[in-house]
């Protein structure tokens, strides 16, 4: 059962990676907007919440090696 879960997780790993890339890109986009147009990005997005999700996904990815 444990092995099956591990295999399932491995099969979802590429998706997790894409999610991680998305949140990283969104945070970079937000950072650029905050430098150029302060206050606009944080008006619509909670940067701390986005960073927490990104970090959570990163920890999940690190938990399982390829």
């Amino acid at each position: 059962m444990k092995k099956l879960g591990f295999i399932t997780f491995l099969s979802w790993r590429p998706l997790l990676e894409e999610i991680f890339y998305f949140f990283c890109s969104l945070l970079i986009l937000g950072g650029i907007f905050e430098i150029l147009l302060p206050g606009l990005f944080v008006l619509y997005f909670n940067a701390a919440f986005l960073a927490a999700i990104g970090l959570g996904v990163l920890l999940l990815l690190l938990y399982v090696r390829r």
Binding site: L15, E18, I19, Y21, F22, S25, L26, L29, F33, L37, L40, F41, Y44
Partner: peptide
Amino acid sequence: IRLAWVSLLALIFFFL
């Protein structure tokens, strides 16, 4: 999936 999130990011960019 990659196309979807890049599109979403572009959408957010144009929205801002």
